[in-house]
Structure formats: structure tokens, C-alpha cells
């Protein structure tokens, strides 16, 4: 009887001790991506006279379809491909998408910008360094590198617009979510969606498309092309530390306010890596 008791108890213990599954890394299943809230900024250097640029726009659309709000595109019209034919609105390519920031970064006509002579379409994915320019075909791979990482900062945008003064205000709060010791800058742009105007598309016949929908179009910067350094040292930034900034800008006469979006992003001043981006509709 004593042995039976011992055997039964041993059996029970063996059953129990083996009833646990310790999981080792990787904790994520193969072939799936997990988004932790990090938003990926894409600079799309483009131009309405650029016949291959719609391919880059399609790449952005496919990334937005795949990753949704995790992708934050900014279409920067620049170089000679952004030239206009005149001011007569009955003519094709009369509309001027160019901005001071676009001219500075991408160049105006034949004058190169900060990134040198660009062959459009070309862009930057989550890093603003000169040597990070990528063809649009490489953007999905680059986005995939960042998409499952964690945002080091969270950005809150509080927009405000006055019909009377035409002033757009943006209160930005940057909150540390991962302790780090980076020197960081905050850049705030305004973009516009659903601008219907001319675009060259070499894949179409005729190649000049009159009612092309231009999205994510850079309209202006609240604080310049490189924004404002909001932490000018490499001291440790602790979880929860906040940086609060307020900016304002006057709305352009041809902007539709209901389609305007404030884009804010934080990047590392030394590495140019974009650490987090955020968008918010003005209205």
C-alpha cells in the first residue's frame, strides 16, 4: 500500500511539473508584424512633371494600405519636375506645388538643394541623412525595418484654426516613452490631401493626367526644414519627460483647410534617424 501511495503521488507530481510551457524568444510568430505605435516618416521627393513619380505614389499607397496610420508620407515637390508653365489656370501644369522647404531640400529647377541633384522619384524613409536617399522600390523594405520597433517618443498635436485670422496654430507635446540620451529636434509641417491637378504619368496614354489626385503635399513648415532642437544635450531623458512647443502659421489662400494636416516628427540631431512622427487634421 505504501508503495502504491508513493507511486500515485509521484505520478501526480510528474504530471504537474511538466504542465508548463516556457516560451523562449522569438515571442512573435513567424511571418507576422506587430506594430507598437512607431510611425514611419517618408519624404517623397516628387514633381508634377515627373512621369515616373506616380510609381512612388503607388508605393506609398500600398504601404498605407498595408500599415495604415503607421506610415506618414510627405510629398515634396521640387527640382525642374516641379516647374510651372505659367499662371494661366486653363493651361496644364500651371499650379505651383513648390515650397521654400521643398526648394531648400530638393532643389529648384536646376539649382540643387540640400540633398544634391535628385533623380526623381526618390525619397527618405525615417532617416533624413543625405546618404539615406532611396529609390521607391526600396521603401517597403526600409519601412519593414522600423515598423515593429517601439517609438522612443510619443507626440500629441493640438491644432487650432481661426477663420477670421487664417492662423493655424499647433501645440505639440513630445513625451519620452523610452529612456535615452539623444539630442533631438522637432519639425512641424503642414500638408494637404486631395489636391486635384495635372500630373505626368508615363504609364498612361495620354501621359498628361488632368485630374490626378495629389496627396500628402507639403504646404509649409511651422519651424523650418530642420525644425527646432528641443533637447540640446545628451543628458538622459527619462520616461515621461515632456517637451511642449507651440507654433503658428498663416494659411495659404489656395489651401483647403478641411484637407490640411499637421505633421510633426522628432529626429536625432546626430544620426538624423526619425524617432517618431504624428499627424493630426487641422479641422
Amino acid at each position: 500500500m505504501k508503495y502504491i501511495k508513493f507511486a500515485v503521488i509521484s505520478f501526480v507530481l510528474v504530471i504537474f511539473v511538466t504542465s508548463c510551457d516556457i516560451i523562449e524568444e522569438p515571442y512573435t510568430k513567424e511571418g507576422v508584424f506587430v506594430w507598437h505605435g512607431r510611425k514611419i516618416l517618408i519624404y517623397d521627393f516628387t514633381g508634377h512633371k515627373c512621369g515616373n513619380c506616380p510609381r512612388a505614389h503607388e508605393t506609398i499607397n500600398s504601404l498605407v494600405n498595408l500599415y495604415g496610420e503607421a506610415v506618414v508620407p510627405v510629398a515634396i515637390h521640387c527640382t525642374a519636375f516641379a516647374r510651372v508653365t505659367g499662371t494661366d489656370s486653363t493651361q496644364a501644369y500651371y499650379y505651383d506645388f513648390r515650397t521654400d522647404i521643398g526648394d531648400y531640400l530638393g532643389g529648384r529647377m536646376t539649382e540643387p538643394g540640400y540633398y544634391g541633384e535628385l533623380t526623381l522619384p526618390i525619397g527618405l524613409v525615417n532617416n533624413l541623412a543625405k546618404d539615406k536617399l532611396l529609390s521607391h522600390t526600396a521603401w517597403p523594405t526600409e519601412v519593414a525595418k522600423f515598423i515593429s520597433s517601439f517609438p522612443e517618443y510619443l507626440i500629441e498635436i493640438q491644432p487650432e484654426y481661426s477663420n477670421e485670422t487664417n492662423i493655424i496654430k499647433a501645440d505639440i507635446k513630445v513625451k519620452t516613452s523610452i529612456t535615452n540620451s539623444r539630442k533631438i529636434a522637432l519639425t512641424v509641417f503642414i500638408t494637404e490631401e486631395h489636391i486635384i491637378n495635372w500630373q505626368t504619368d508615363y504609364s498612361k496614354t495620354p501621359k498628361d493626367i488632368q485630374n490626378y489626385e495629389h496627396n500628402h503635399v507639403l504646404r509649409a513648415g511651422f519651424n523650418g526644414a530642420w525644425g527646432e532642437v528641443i533637447k540640446n544635450n545628451t543628458n538622459v531623458t527619462a520616461l515621461g519627460d515632456e517637451y511642449v512647443k507651440s507654433y503658428s502659421i498663416t494659411k495659404g489662400n489656395d489651401w483647403k483647410i478641411q484637407n490640411c494636416i499637421i505633421v510633426a516628427f522628432v529626429y536625432d540631431v546626430n544620426t538624423y534617424e526619425v524617432l517618431q512622427a504624428e499627424i493630426m487634421k487641422v479641422q
Binding site: 504537474f16 504542465s19 508548463c20 510551457d21 512573435t28 510568430k29
Partner: peptide, 12 residues
């Protein structure tokens, strides 16, 4: 049955 993570069936 989680779509993303390799979860343990048995937790002790």
C-alpha cells in the same frame, strides 16, 4: 490561439 504571439498553452 493568438494571431501574433507564441503563447504558452500551459501556465504554471
Amino acid at each position: 490561439d493568438h494571431p501574433l504571439y507564441n503563447l504558452p498553452d500551459n501556465v504554471a
